[in-house]
Amino acid sequence: MSETRKIALELERSANVLKLLGDKTRLTMMKILDNHDACVCEFVEIFKTSQPAISQHVRKLKDVGMVKETRRGQWIIYSLNKEGEFFPLVEDLLRHLPNQDYRLKELEEQGLRISCE
């Protein structure tokens, strides 16, 4: 493969990652995962949307390697994939976003933080 073709492919892949992060919900999820692991049930409560919709967002992030999952009993907990190919790009972007810890604090106050455990 020519060097020009490699560069074009890399730009295409980076553009796709940025397009995924152009969605406010996915971008917010990534910022939350920057400091905390979370499960789908927590995202459902945070975003007040359906579980299938949240699962679709998470799947898209996982498919490109930005998010990884860990099983805890019957539950799946999501975290940033810091070994992922695009993590340096994502890490730099997340550094410029406002902290989202208040969203998890609100869940804790409602007794809904990690309600799936």
Score class of each variant (00 low, 15 high):
L27F: 09
N81L: 04
R59A: 14
R5D: 15
L80K: 01
R72M: 12
N81R: 06
L94S: 01
K68M: 07
S2Q: 06
I54N: 08
E10C: 13
E109I: 03
R95I: 15
L9K: 11
D101A: 02
H36S: 14
K82W: 02
E45G: 01
E12V: 02
M29A: 11
D101L: 04
F87Q: 02
H57R: 07
I77P: 01
N81K: 02
N35H: 03
L33S: 08
K105T: 08
V64F: 03
T28G: 03
D101T: 10
F86M: 00
D101H: 06
G84K: 00
N16R: 05
T25D: 13
K31W: 04
E42L: 11
P98K: 04
I54T: 07
D34L: 08
K31F: 09
E10N: 15
V67Q: 04
E3S: 15
E69Q: 13
R26K: 04
D63V: 09
R113M: 10
E10Y: 05
N99E: 08
E117S: 10
C39H: 05
K19H: 00
W75T: 08
Q56W: 07
S50K: 14
G111T: 09
S79A: 14
P98S: 09
V44F: 13
N35E: 11
V64Y: 05
N35Q: 03
K62P: 01
A15Y: 09
L104M: 05
R103S: 14
V40I: 11
L33N: 02
E83V: 06
F86W: 04
T70Y: 13
E91Y: 00
L93T: 01
M1L: 12
C116M: 12
S14F: 06
L107N: 00
V17R: 01
L27N: 05
H36L: 10
D63G: 05
P52K: 10
